[in-house]
């Protein structure tokens, strides 16, 4: 921790340690601490069950291929990952498309009760899944959607947050552009596709990352509404691995392999798109 010392300027906060070095050091320590559980999991995912039960054994075990293969194919994680991926993509595409359209209507049209309708959209923020979980579950049954891709995507493809973000962004687009488009007689869809979308690339990417990660990480709702193992998503799928055992011993190596796999997809998405994500977050705070 920093020690206050009036004899040193703000350039160096800690006694005897240049400020920049202290920044680097504290970042490295924080990052290592944050990453340690994952690194250990990665390490354990290469060990056999016997090696894992030898608690102090922290050497790579050489069973990586076996564990990952078994998790993916014997325990069907590959299928769950595909399910999760399809679900997340549907939610991202659906949510972005629907929200772009809604924001288009709200920003570029004038119609009665506009404020009321916008408020009606925003108010749904008060209704997270747990507030409506029981009837939503019964609704899925009545619609015949239970246990299907529809059930895990449908309720998520509209969102107050995305509408709000696109609205904010559209409002920041210079109105001269709109005038030009209007004079040229450009239709609304053309305007959306040719003008708004290209100008909103970063925002769309940001919303997509948020949505993708959010959809991918869903657990409670798929757990409840998907009853067929074959159709389950990967988050719930890794809990199936917990029953994986060898001579009565839980195969933690395999479970760790599954966990790493379940994390890898959103991690890649995040790393690839972290710039637009940060920009989106920054915009939200204006």
């Amino acid at each position: 921790m920093a020690v206050e010392d009036s004899s040193i300027t703000s350039e160096s906060a800690t006694v005897g340690l240049p400020d920049t070095l202290w920044v680097h050091l504290s970042l490295v320590v924080s990052i290592v601490l944050m990453g340690a559980p994952l690194l250990l999991a990665l390490l354990m995912s290469t060990q056999s069950t016997a090696q894992i039960y030898d608690v102090t054994n922290l050497a790579p075990g050489g069973y990586a291929l076996e564990n990952y293969q078994s998790a993916l194919f014997e325990y069907d994680l590959a299928r769950y990952i595909v399910n999760s991926f399809v679900m997340s993509i549907i939610v991202v595409v659906g949510k972005v498309s629907l929200s772009l359209l809604a924001a288009l209507a709200i920003v570029y049209y004038d119609f009665p009760y506009k404020d009321a309708i916008f408020a009606f959209v925003l108010l749904t923020l008060l209704l997270p899944v747990p507030v409506r979980i029981v009837p939503l579950f019964e609704l899925m049954a009545d619609l015949g959607w239970a246990n299907s891709m529809l059930a895990i995507t449908g309720p998520y493809i509209a969102s107050a947050t995305a509408v709000f973000l696109f609205r904010q962004h559209f409002l920041s687009i210079p109105s001269s552009l709109v005038e030009t488009a209007r004079l040229d007689g450009v239709g609304p869809i053309e305007f959306l596709v040719d003008v708004l979308v290209p100008m909103s690339r970063g925002m769309i990417a940001g919303v997509s990352v948020i949505t993708f990660v959010y959809a991918w990480n869903q657990y409670l709702w798929p757990l409840i509404v998907v009853s067929d193992q074959q159709k389950q998503v990967v988050q719930v799928g890794i809990s199936y691995l917990q029953s994986a055992s060898q001579a009565g011993q839980t195969q933690w190596g395999l479970i760790m392999a599954g966990s790493i796999l379940a994390l890898s997809v959103p991690l890649v998405v995040l790393v690839a798109l972290h710039r637009p994500l940060l920009e989106t977050f920054a915009l939200q705070q204006k």
Partner: peptide
Amino acid sequence: GTAGVAGLTGL
């Protein structure tokens, strides 16, 4: 959790 409506799979 995975309960309920599983029934409808059969539909």
